[in-house]
């Protein structure tokens, strides 16, 4: 197993803390991308807290691993993580979305420390990731690039231009995740614009393709280690996730792509997140070793 019980439990605790931060930020801001923020949070947590080679004291270290969050609307999950790492002032989260704030729905790489690319317009991240990987090759560096795509954004054709080039240039140092939460703003992906068979598509484009439970840290760890070991092809890890996971009855409901909650909803969400964490923690304690 790629993950020790101790690591697993630590990741569960960190992800729980970050989900609470996401909730807190959403409550302070008045609304937020709860759905896609929570669905991607385990992916973000494990790459930043187990795999990425970064220096907390030097966030712009030129040999650092890169992370391109192509689904830029995950800012409400990503910003708390970048604050929690110590790179940004916690007070900034209290100004999230406010006029003049450094932080808002889509994070600006020139304003928020640790953001490797400004995203928001969809379908840009994989191209940028191929670019950072090719730069590593030219500069003789061995850093990795983690790219996180939303599933809905895969409708954008530019992703497939980028996918073709990732395989063509064999940028195996790019590890691509798809946050496959199954929903986009207007409804389920398969009714708005069908993506399946998604794994076959990436495989046909020249990727090693893995499909896992994106809320299982052991599965994420195993997939990432497979990807890190690959040198022949880039790897795509399709992570089946649940939109607004952990938020009680909101989980899996596409209408919680973006939402606001009142004080009662906020109190209920805190309880829901605690219950969700308790279940995941118990599982880690039972199955970890």
């Amino acid at each position: 197993m790629a993950l020790s019980k101790q690591e697993w439990l630590a990741l569960e605790a960190k992800a729980h803390k970050l989900r609470l931060d996401l909730l807190e930020t959403t409550h302070m801001a008045g609304s937020g991308h709860i759905g896609g923020g929570s669905s991607v949070l385990d992916i973000l947590t494990i790459i930043y807290h187990k795999y990425m080679n970064i220096r907390i004291e030097d966030p712009k270290w030129e040999d650092r691993d890169r992370c391109i969050v192509s689904k830029g609307h995950a800012g409400i999950a990503y910003a708390p993580l970048l604050v929690d790492l110590g790179w940004n002032d916690p007070e900034q989260l209290k100004t999230f979305n406010l006029t003049g704030s450094k932080m808002g729905i889509h994070l600006d790489s020139n304003k928020v420390i640790g953001v490797d690319a400004s995203t928001g317009s969809l379908g840009h991240g994989l191209s940028i990731g191929v670019g950072t990987a090719l730069a590593a090759r030219v500069l003789g560096k061995d850093y990795k690039t983690y790219v996180i795509l939303g599933d809905g954004e895969l409708d954008e054709g530019s992703n497939w231009e980028a996918a073709m080039s990732a395989a063509h240039f064999n940028t195996s140092s790019v590890i691509t995740f798809v946050d496959r939460n199954g929903a986009m703003i207007d409804g389920p992906t398969e009714s708005i614009m069908a993506l399946e068979p998604l794994a076959d598509k990436f495989t046909a484009f020249g990727f090693n393709t893995l499909r896992i439970d994106g809320h299982s840290f052991p599965q994420l760890a195993e997939a990432i280690e497979t990807a890190l070991a690959a040198t022949d092809k880039p790897t795509c890890i399709i992570c089946d996730t649940i939109k607004a996971v952990g938020f009680g009855s909101k989980a899996g409901d596409y209408r919680w792509h973006y939402g606001a909650m009142d004080d009662d909803g906020y109190e209920q969400a805190k309880k829901d997140l605690e219950a969700y964490y308790a279940g995941r923690k118990a599982k880690a304690e039972q199955e970890g070793n």
Partner: peptide
Amino acid sequence: PDRFFNVGIAEQNMFGIAAGMAKAGL
């Protein structure tokens, strides 16, 4: 040849790749 990249007929991708390269110091 090692510093030249032909991305095929995919201008959007070319611009994204260039942005990533520039971000990384090229």
